[in-house]
Nucleic acid binder design. Structure first.
Length: 97
DNA sequence: CACATGACCTAAC
DNA sequence: TGTTAGGCCATGT
């Protein structure tokens, strides 16, 4: 079933918050899910944050590819193979693993 | 309302 | 070093 619809763009306040923080990220800068969770005021809600980022309906407008795991690993990106795209993007931004 | 899922984290074996 | 288990929060079914 198709889940993403423009109406859902408003989604929940949490998602908005997460996306807002994501938009705050500047080019060449990366943040961990932990940091992101901390920024929104819920360092324990990291799971919810990850879900919110994964529910990001505007992957082009939102730099979700700048979000990595605490270990420095890529984590994931739009599905499965999207990870390599994320890697490429991060490399392009000047991020070193 | 209760159950199941997930782009997670930390600790333990 | 790699895998397993438990915990945490919000979302979707």
């Amino acid at each position: 079933m198709i889940s993403i619809q423009f109406k859902q763009l408003n989604g929940t306040p949490f998602q908005k918050l997460v996306w807002a923080e994501l938009l705050k990220i500047k080019r060449g800068e990366t943040v961990t899910y932990k940091e992101l969770a901390k920024r929104i005021g819920k360092p324990k809600a990291i799971r919810a944050v990850a879900n919110a980022v994964g529910a990001n309906p505007l992957p082009v407008k939102i730099p979700c590819h700048r979000v990595v795991r605490s270990d420095g690993t890529i984590g994931g990106y739009s599905g499965r193979g999207g990870v390599k795209t994320k890697k490429m993007l991060l490399k392009q931004e000047g991020v070193i693993f």
